[in-house]
Simulated scan of single mutants.
Amino acid sequence: MKSPILLLAALLLGGCATHWPETALLNPQVIPANQQYYSGNRITMEGIDKRAAAHVFAIKQKEKAPVYIKSEQPLNTLLVERLSEGLRSQGLEVGNSGTTNLTLQVNNALVNVEEKTFTYVTKSKVSLQVMADFQGSRLTKVFNASASKEGPGEPSIADLELVLNQQLGSLIQQIMADEQLRGYLKGQPSA
């Protein structure tokens, strides 16, 4: 009597295994500025991805091959779009020509999920670097975010996307609010 019940339980639990998608939908939100910081200032912007691997999520479960999930859209392209939107809301013109060149570099953007004995540990780390060049004067700044969470249930893809979207959005807001960077974008690097 016990073996049919155990078999049924094993089949039911096996049927509950998460099916992970091949790509993640990342959509970090940027809050438009309610203040104009730039007037007639134009910049060029590019995005570079310097990550060691292309995936944004790594799921490691016991006795299973690791699952690696990439962003649906190239991360550097997505972040340049979002940062451009945010800077435009502050009055900055972003285009093919400008007095300042701004480079947004993705150094790290990864959420690791690891199954432990009775829990799942989720650790995320994001590192973005900006480099602003104005007539030979250069500013380089790094913006970091990290988080860690341990819980009894396996996180869903929506949970993981939310964590990474929040961190990316927060870092873009920090970049937009950086006073030293604003000086370079205005063409006043000493300001």
Results as ranks from 00 to 15, higher is better:
45 M>P: 07
78 L>I: 11
136 G>S: 09
45 M>Q: 06
137 S>K: 14
54 A>I: 03
40 G>H: 09
88 R>F: 02
65 A>S: 12
109 A>R: 02
58 A>N: 08
92 L>E: 05
27 N>H: 10
110 L>W: 04
163 V>T: 13
88 R>I: 11
188 Q>S: 14
189 P>V: 02
44 T>P: 06
113 V>D: 01
129 Q>S: 13
12 L>F: 15
154 E>Q: 15
100 T>N: 05
161 E>Q: 15
145 A>N: 13
73 Q>N: 07
51 R>Q: 02
31 I>G: 07
189 P>A: 04
124 S>H: 05
165 N>F: 00
151 G>V: 00
177 A>E: 13
105 Q>V: 13
67 V>E: 07
72 E>D: 15
102 L>H: 06
62 K>R: 11
165 N>C: 01
96 N>F: 01
187 G>K: 05
3 S>Y: 11
83 L>A: 02
155 P>S: 04
60 K>T: 13
162 L>D: 12
50 K>M: 14
170 S>R: 10
30 V>P: 06
79 L>E: 06
183 G>K: 01
118 F>P: 08
110 L>V: 01
156 S>V: 03
164 L>S: 04
16 C>S: 11
28 P>R: 00
147 A>T: 07
180 Q>M: 12
89 S>F: 03
12 L>A: 15
54 A>Q: 09
130 V>Q: 08
101 N>Q: 14
115 E>Y: 09
13 L>R: 03
186 K>Y: 00
79 L>Y: 03
112 N>R: 01
74 P>T: 07
48 I>T: 08
